[in-house]
Write a protein that binds this DNA or RNA. Sequence first.
DNA 1: CCAGACGTTGTT
DNA 2: GTCTGG
DNA 3: CCAGACGTTGTT
DNA 4: GTCTGG
Length: 213
Amino acid sequence: MCGRYTIKKNPSDYLRQVFPGIQFDPAFKFQPNENVCPTLEEPVVLNANGVPFCTLLRWGLIPSWSREEKPGTGIINARSETVAEKPSFKASFRRKRCLVPVDGFYEWKKTGVGSKKIPYRFYRKSDPFLLLAGIWDEWERPMGILRTFAILTTAANASIADVHDRMPVILDKKQVDQWLARNEDTSQLSNFFDPEKLPALDREELDKVKSAV
DNA sequence: CCAGACGTTGTT
DNA sequence: GTCTGG
DNA sequence: CCAGACGTTGTT
DNA sequence: GTCTGG
Protein backbone atom coordinates (compact mmCIF):
# COMPACT_ATOMS: atom_id res chain seq x y z
CA MET A 1 0.00 0.00 0.00
CA CYS A 2 1.14 3.50 0.31
CA GLY A 3 0.71 5.29 3.62
CA ARG A 4 3.90 7.34 3.80
CA TYR A 5 6.16 8.87 1.19
CA THR A 6 8.99 11.32 0.66
CA ILE A 7 9.21 14.53 -1.26
CA LYS A 8 12.65 15.84 -0.42
CA LYS A 9 13.26 17.72 -3.66
CA ASN A 10 11.22 20.47 -5.26
CA PRO A 11 9.34 18.84 -8.16
CA SER A 12 8.70 22.09 -10.05
CA ASP A 13 11.41 21.77 -12.70
CA TYR A 14 10.67 18.11 -13.25
CA LEU A 15 6.97 18.83 -13.67
CA ARG A 16 7.73 21.60 -16.17
CA GLN A 17 9.67 19.06 -18.25
CA VAL A 18 6.94 16.44 -18.14
CA PHE A 19 4.07 18.91 -18.61
CA PRO A 20 5.03 21.77 -20.89
CA GLY A 21 2.52 24.50 -20.19
CA ILE A 22 1.91 23.47 -16.59
CA GLN A 23 0.54 26.22 -14.38
CA PHE A 24 1.33 26.60 -10.70
CA ASP A 25 -1.13 27.65 -8.07
CA PRO A 26 0.02 31.03 -6.76
CA ALA A 27 -0.44 29.52 -3.30
CA PHE A 28 1.91 26.64 -4.11
CA LYS A 29 4.75 26.48 -1.61
CA PHE A 30 7.10 23.54 -1.59
CA GLN A 31 7.92 21.98 1.77
CA PRO A 32 10.48 19.19 1.64
CA ASN A 33 9.39 16.25 3.81
CA GLU A 34 11.04 12.86 4.32
CA ASN A 35 7.95 11.49 5.98
CA VAL A 36 4.74 12.69 4.38
CA CYS A 37 1.76 11.31 6.29
CA PRO A 38 -2.01 11.50 5.76
CA THR A 39 -3.73 14.86 6.41
CA LEU A 40 -0.79 16.94 5.17
CA GLU A 41 -1.18 19.29 2.21
CA GLU A 42 1.05 18.07 -0.61
CA PRO A 43 1.69 18.85 -4.28
CA VAL A 44 -0.48 17.21 -6.94
CA VAL A 45 -1.00 17.85 -10.65
CA LEU A 46 -4.59 17.94 -11.87
CA ASN A 47 -6.43 19.12 -14.96
CA ALA A 48 -7.72 22.68 -14.64
CA ASN A 49 -9.72 23.63 -17.72
CA GLY A 50 -7.53 21.52 -19.93
CA VAL A 51 -4.25 22.76 -18.46
CA PRO A 52 -2.02 20.77 -16.10
CA PHE A 53 -2.16 22.56 -12.79
CA CYS A 54 0.08 22.02 -9.77
CA THR A 55 -1.49 22.77 -6.42
CA LEU A 56 -1.59 21.56 -2.84
CA LEU A 57 -4.28 19.13 -1.73
CA ARG A 58 -4.79 17.37 1.57
CA TRP A 59 -3.96 13.66 1.64
CA GLY A 60 -7.02 11.62 2.67
CA LEU A 61 -10.00 11.64 0.33
CA ILE A 62 -13.23 13.09 1.71
CA PRO A 63 -15.89 12.61 -0.97
CA SER A 64 -18.11 15.55 -1.84
CA TRP A 65 -21.20 13.90 -0.38
CA SER A 66 -19.67 13.31 3.05
CA ARG A 67 -21.99 14.42 5.81
CA GLU A 68 -20.99 17.05 8.28
CA GLU A 69 -18.73 16.10 11.17
CA LYS A 70 -15.87 13.73 11.53
CA PRO A 71 -14.66 12.92 8.03
CA GLY A 72 -11.51 12.09 10.01
CA THR A 73 -8.39 11.29 8.08
CA GLY A 74 -10.27 10.44 4.93
CA ILE A 75 -9.38 7.55 2.65
CA ILE A 76 -5.70 7.49 1.80
CA ASN A 77 -5.69 4.69 -0.81
CA ALA A 78 -8.10 3.34 -3.42
CA ARG A 79 -7.73 -0.12 -4.91
CA SER A 80 -7.15 0.24 -8.64
CA GLU A 81 -8.91 -3.08 -9.21
CA THR A 82 -12.23 -1.60 -8.07
CA VAL A 83 -11.82 2.17 -8.22
CA ALA A 84 -14.05 2.46 -11.29
CA GLU A 85 -16.98 0.78 -9.56
CA LYS A 86 -16.88 1.80 -5.91
CA PRO A 87 -19.53 4.41 -5.12
CA SER A 88 -17.02 6.37 -3.06
CA PHE A 89 -14.57 6.68 -5.94
CA LYS A 90 -16.56 6.37 -9.14
CA ALA A 91 -17.21 10.05 -9.74
CA SER A 92 -13.67 11.11 -8.88
CA PHE A 93 -12.22 8.39 -11.08
CA ARG A 94 -14.24 9.64 -14.02
CA ARG A 95 -13.71 13.35 -13.56
CA LYS A 96 -11.02 14.13 -11.00
CA ARG A 97 -7.82 12.20 -11.60
CA CYS A 98 -4.48 13.59 -10.49
CA LEU A 99 -0.79 12.76 -10.20
CA VAL A 100 1.20 12.83 -7.00
CA PRO A 101 4.91 13.59 -7.46
CA VAL A 102 7.06 11.78 -4.87
CA ASP A 103 10.74 10.90 -4.67
CA GLY A 104 10.19 7.75 -2.65
CA PHE A 105 7.57 5.85 -0.72
CA TYR A 106 7.78 3.65 2.36
CA GLU A 107 6.65 0.11 3.00
CA TRP A 108 7.22 -1.77 6.25
CA LYS A 109 8.20 -5.41 6.29
CA LYS A 110 6.85 -7.48 9.12
CA THR A 111 9.58 -9.52 10.78
CA GLY A 112 7.54 -11.92 12.87
CA VAL A 113 9.74 -10.94 15.82
CA GLY A 114 7.24 -9.39 18.16
CA SER A 115 5.53 -6.66 16.20
CA LYS A 116 8.79 -5.27 14.83
CA LYS A 117 8.65 -3.82 11.33
CA ILE A 118 11.54 -2.76 9.14
CA PRO A 119 10.95 0.30 6.96
CA TYR A 120 12.10 0.37 3.35
CA ARG A 121 12.14 3.36 1.09
CA PHE A 122 11.44 2.58 -2.57
CA TYR A 123 12.46 4.93 -5.35
CA ARG A 124 14.00 4.82 -8.80
CA LYS A 125 17.65 5.68 -9.35
CA SER A 126 17.00 6.39 -13.02
CA ASP A 127 14.39 9.08 -12.38
CA PRO A 128 14.28 11.82 -9.76
CA PHE A 129 10.52 11.47 -9.19
CA LEU A 130 7.75 8.93 -9.35
CA LEU A 131 4.33 10.08 -10.52
CA LEU A 132 1.65 8.25 -8.55
CA ALA A 133 -1.90 7.86 -9.83
CA GLY A 134 -4.44 9.63 -7.63
CA ILE A 135 -8.03 10.79 -7.48
CA TRP A 136 -9.34 13.88 -5.74
CA ASP A 137 -12.58 15.51 -4.71
CA GLU A 138 -13.86 18.64 -3.08
CA TRP A 139 -16.02 18.81 0.01
CA GLU A 140 -17.98 21.96 0.74
CA ARG A 141 -17.64 23.05 4.29
CA PRO A 142 -19.23 26.01 5.97
CA MET A 143 -15.76 27.55 5.85
CA GLY A 144 -14.76 27.03 2.25
CA ILE A 145 -13.95 24.04 0.08
CA LEU A 146 -11.69 21.23 1.27
CA ARG A 147 -9.87 19.48 -1.57
CA THR A 148 -8.43 16.06 -0.79
CA PHE A 149 -6.80 13.16 -2.64
CA ALA A 150 -6.19 9.40 -2.43
CA ILE A 151 -3.42 7.30 -4.01
CA LEU A 152 -4.33 4.26 -6.12
CA THR A 153 -2.80 0.92 -5.19
CA THR A 154 -2.24 -2.37 -6.98
CA ALA A 155 -0.58 -5.70 -6.24
CA ALA A 156 3.13 -5.50 -5.49
CA ASN A 157 5.43 -6.21 -8.42
CA ALA A 158 8.49 -8.44 -8.17
CA SER A 159 10.76 -5.63 -7.03
CA ILE A 160 8.92 -5.08 -3.76
CA ALA A 161 6.85 -8.21 -3.13
CA ASP A 162 9.23 -9.55 -0.47
CA VAL A 163 8.53 -6.48 1.63
CA HIS A 164 4.82 -5.92 1.07
CA ASP A 165 1.95 -7.17 -1.06
CA ARG A 166 0.60 -3.81 -2.28
CA MET A 167 2.19 -0.81 -3.96
CA PRO A 168 1.09 2.53 -5.41
CA VAL A 169 0.22 2.79 -9.09
CA ILE A 170 3.18 4.53 -10.77
CA LEU A 171 2.52 6.09 -14.15
CA ASP A 172 4.96 6.42 -17.01
CA LYS A 173 5.60 9.83 -18.57
CA LYS A 174 3.91 8.51 -21.70
CA GLN A 175 0.73 7.79 -19.76
CA VAL A 176 0.27 10.92 -17.72
CA ASP A 177 -1.48 13.01 -20.37
CA GLN A 178 -4.08 10.34 -20.89
CA TRP A 179 -4.49 9.99 -17.14
CA LEU A 180 -5.17 13.70 -16.72
CA ALA A 181 -7.34 14.02 -19.83
CA ARG A 182 -10.87 15.20 -19.22
CA ASN A 183 -12.29 12.07 -20.69
CA GLU A 184 -14.97 10.11 -18.97
CA ASP A 185 -14.22 7.04 -21.06
CA THR A 186 -12.00 5.36 -18.52
CA SER A 187 -11.98 1.97 -20.22
CA GLN A 188 -8.35 2.28 -21.34
CA LEU A 189 -7.01 3.45 -18.01
CA SER A 190 -7.10 0.08 -16.30
CA ASN A 191 -4.21 -0.90 -18.56
CA PHE A 192 -2.08 1.32 -16.36
CA PHE A 193 -2.68 -0.78 -13.26
CA ASP A 194 -0.88 -4.00 -14.17
CA PRO A 195 1.79 -4.33 -11.48
CA GLU A 196 4.21 -6.23 -13.69
CA LYS A 197 4.20 -3.33 -16.13
CA LEU A 198 5.13 -0.92 -13.38
CA PRO A 199 8.82 -0.07 -13.08
CA ALA A 200 11.27 -2.11 -11.04
CA LEU A 201 12.21 -0.05 -8.03
CA ASP A 202 15.40 0.49 -6.11
CA ARG A 203 15.29 0.43 -2.34
CA GLU A 204 17.03 1.40 0.83
CA GLU A 205 16.51 -0.37 4.13
CA LEU A 206 16.23 1.93 7.11
CA ASP A 207 16.42 1.60 10.85
CA LYS A 208 13.76 4.18 11.38
CA VAL A 209 11.79 6.66 9.35
CA LYS A 210 12.74 10.16 10.35
CA SER A 211 9.84 11.80 12.08
CA ALA A 212 7.65 14.15 10.11
CA VAL A 213 8.96 17.68 9.69
C1' DC B 1 -39.60 2.66 -3.23
C1' DC B 2 -36.50 4.87 0.80
C1' DA B 3 -32.71 4.62 4.18
C1' DG B 4 -28.27 4.01 4.94
C1' DA B 5 -23.76 3.13 3.65
C1' DC B 6 -20.14 4.37 0.90
C1' DG B 7 -12.59 2.74 2.18
C1' DT B 8 -7.91 0.57 2.77
C1' DT B 9 -4.74 -1.68 5.44
C1' DG B 10 -3.64 -5.40 8.44
C1' DT B 11 -4.96 -8.59 11.73
C1' DT B 12 -7.90 -12.07 13.60
C1' DG C 1 -5.05 -3.77 22.62
C1' DT C 2 -6.90 0.31 20.35
C1' DC C 3 -7.58 5.01 19.17
C1' DT C 4 -5.85 9.64 17.56
C1' DG C 5 -2.97 12.91 15.38
C1' DG C 6 0.07 14.06 11.95
C1' DC D 1 0.72 4.60 7.20
C1' DC D 2 3.26 4.86 12.13
C1' DA D 3 4.02 6.86 16.74
C1' DG D 4 2.34 7.83 20.84
C1' DA D 5 -1.04 8.00 24.17
C1' DC D 6 -4.20 5.67 26.75
C1' DG D 7 -7.02 7.79 33.70
C1' DT D 8 -9.09 9.33 38.12
C1' DT D 9 -9.16 11.36 42.51
C1' DG D 10 -7.59 14.49 45.61
C1' DT D 11 -4.13 17.44 47.20
C1' DT D 12 -0.69 21.04 46.47
C1' DG E 1 -23.47 11.07 -6.01
C1' DT E 2 -24.68 6.10 -6.26
C1' DC E 3 -25.36 1.43 -4.75
C1' DT E 4 -27.49 -2.16 -1.60
C1' DG E 5 -30.69 -4.18 1.42
C1' DG E 6 -35.09 -4.56 3.06
